Simulated assay, not measured.
Amino acid sequence: MSKQMENAYPVSWIGLKPARFRKYRTWINAVKPGICGTYVGAVILHDAFNQKYGIDLSKEKLITGLKMIIDDTFVYKGTFPWDVWHGLNWVLKGNQDFKVKMHFVPERKVVALLNRKNPIPVAVGTATLFGSPYKNHWLVVYAYGYNEEGKLFFKAYDNHGRYKAIIPASQTIGCVWIEAV
């Protein structure tokens, strides 16, 4: 990596440690067309249950179940924030310990959620419209940082096999998270 590229990224990060998301590097979305909304929904649901109850939910069951609700419910192609919200909300109905929330502007919301005493991971969408090399995609953001120029970046699990992906916050739109009640 060139020195110029190194300086483009933040030196320090606020939020959760990457080690917590290392286990998800094998949660790779190999389906064509992709089901990245299902994968990020599965990861934040798995993480919420693991943190709250110490339960290790089955990856296969999560992906299979959430795919039917998130990616297969609506007739249009692609996954929007309300699709991820709807799927997680449906799965968690009747569970009084969690509430699923959604917001359309990730920059402020993600920073606020990761600045808490107990930060939580957030499913965040990227957009071709905003210049994302990921195009329209979903990631799980668990840390943020500002580079030397003050530009906001997110560190995230990417369902292509990376758990320390770095993306500019300016390339994102829409976010969904599971709030412990």
Results as ranks from 00 to 15, higher is better:
Phe74Tyr: 15
Asp71Ser: 15
Val84Ile: 14
Thr126Gln: 08
Gly37Met: 04
Ser58Gly: 15
Ile173Ala: 10
Thr64Val: 04
Ser12Gln: 12
Gly150Ile: 09
His103Pro: 05
Lys52Met: 13
Lys93Tyr: 10
Ile35Val: 08
Cys36Glu: 05
Lys59Arg: 12
Thr64Arg: 11
Thr126Tyr: 04
Leu92His: 06
His137Glu: 00
Ala112His: 03
Ile63Arg: 11
Pro18Ala: 13
Gly41Gln: 00
Asn147Val: 05
Val140Ser: 06
Ile167Thr: 04
Val176Arg: 00
Phe80Cys: 02
Pro18Ile: 13
Gly161Lys: 06
Tyr157Thr: 03
His160Asp: 14
Lys164Ser: 14
Asn7Thr: 08
Gln51Lys: 13
Ala165Asp: 06
Val140Ile: 02
Asp56Trp: 05
Ala156Glu: 05
Leu88Val: 07
Ser170Pro: 12
Gly94Ile: 08
Ile28Ala: 11
Val176Glu: 00
Val176Pro: 11
Gly78Phe: 10
Ile63Val: 12
Tyr53Val: 14
Ile120Asp: 00
Phe130Gln: 08
Val141Arg: 10
Thr26Gln: 14
Pro133Ala: 10
Lys164His: 13
Asp71Tyr: 11
Gly131Leu: 04
Asn29Phe: 11
Lys61Asp: 13
Val124Ala: 08
Val111Asp: 00
Gly54Ala: 13
Ala127Asn: 02
Trp13His: 08
His160Lys: 14
Leu114Gln: 01
Ile166Gly: 09
Pro10Asp: 07
His46Val: 01
His103Trp: 07
Thr26Ala: 07
Lys59Cys: 10
Ala112Leu: 01
Asn115Ala: 03
Leu152Pro: 09
Glu6Ala: 12
Tyr53His: 12
Pro33Ala: 03
Ala127Pro: 02
Ala165Gly: 05
Pro133Phe: 06
Ser170Ile: 11
Lys17Phe: 15
Gly78Gln: 03
Ile178Met: 10
Lys164Ile: 07
Gln96Ile: 14
Leu62Glu: 00
Trp82Arg: 12
